[in-house]
Nucleic acid binder design. Structure first.
Lengths: 199, 199
DNA sequence: GTCTATACGCCGATAGAC
DNA sequence: GTCTATCGGCGTATAGAC
């Protein structure tokens, strides 16, 4: 089916929706869910107040829709548990890449996780798969005596902490030249593997 | 000492202030600054709405006062840069202990850091000393060729991530028996040292 | 589909009685 | 020092014109 032609605009509808999504993403990132008002979003997006409810059905639904782009990413990830060490390395590198490319959404997610927000129920498919994959990988690593840790849970948290903080932090005026995502990914995988390795 | 009996109350003033502080701490932790209303705090503390303004001068000042107990802790920390490896180990262990004993405040702090909130300006003396200490320690370690990293900034973030996530996370139903803070502190120091060590 | 105007509730802060 | 009552403002959501 071709475009509906001449009418007012080509895809004005989609355009407005995406403008709202863009504004919402940056605002939620820097002010949090409760710190961001629909008014601010619409002002930033340069559209009228009513359009968030019209296009998304309200602030909360807009919030959830923000995460649609990364829902697939995490769902489609696969790791070969037969080679746990390689799987761990692969997990770390892919996570860091995603940490960089989806910085804002993962920041928002971290805020929500930290306060155990009531919105998490609608976001489990966004964040749980990663935690589960990592846990399975580390479980396998431990069984093969590749790593050493008091409990798999603890190792999961340590690794996740490492990977979550792999990106530059806004509140530090980081001086020198920034690493590339790929460099950081390699270093992260190294750091994790060495850190968990049996002495 | 028996109860002071008949006078109005012994330290009702202090008692009310502390009740408000307690309620504020738990609410800010689980709902964030903007997600928590003064009304909720007062209801939870079982005092009337006006008392937050009366005793603290408003919501924001109450928020800042929450952190007073840990301001000293971080300011008074000292590390001997002459023995960087020992300093790093000490830093990790002390941070993890604090992470456990001041779980709620550090959670709140993390939320604020993550969204680079405008309130951070009044909290620099709470969180900056730790980041600075860690950076100095890692700088020293790197100069002595004890550790290896693409940049000190990156190492700082990795270590902080590890330590921040050293505590149990509310959104994971963590199965097995929890580690003690001391066990976790030891493991964290090990993980960090091994992770950063030259191969 | 997009706008303006408005409904209605909760927000933080304070005035004034006790 | 603590309460209740209330202020002005901003929150989300929607009705109705275009």
């Amino acid at each position: 089916m071709a475009k509906p032609q001449t009418p007012p605009e080509p895809d004005k509808n989609k355009e407005v929706k995406e403008q709202i999504l863009r504004a919402a993403k940056t605002l939620f990132t820097t002010r949090g869910y409760d710190g961001t008002s629909v008014r601010q979003i619409c002002e930033e997006a340069d559209v009228s107040l009513a359009l968030v409810s019209y296009h998304f059905g309200g602030k909360e639904k807009l919030f959830y829709e923000l995460f649609n782009p990364i829902r697939e990413i995490f769902r489609n990830q696969q790791f070969d548990l037969a080679d746990p060490e390689k799987a761990l390395k692969q997990f770390c590198m892919e996570f860091v890449r995603n940490r960089y490319s989806e910085n804002e959404l993962i920041n928002i997610l971290q805020q929500e996780l930290l306060m155990n927000s009531p919105r998490l129920d609608m976001l489990t498919d966004v964040f749980l798969p990663s935690w589960d994959h990592l846990r399975q990988i580390l479980q396998a690593c431990k069984q093969c005596d590749i790593i050493e840790c008091p409990s798999v849970d603890t190792a999961v948290r340590f690794v996740m902490g490492t990977l979550m903080y792999s990106i530059q932090l806004p509140f530090l005026n980081q001086s020198g030249p920034a690493q590339t995502p790929e460099e950081t990914a390699r270093f992260a995988a190294d750091y994790v593997l060495k850190g968990l390795s049996r002495r």
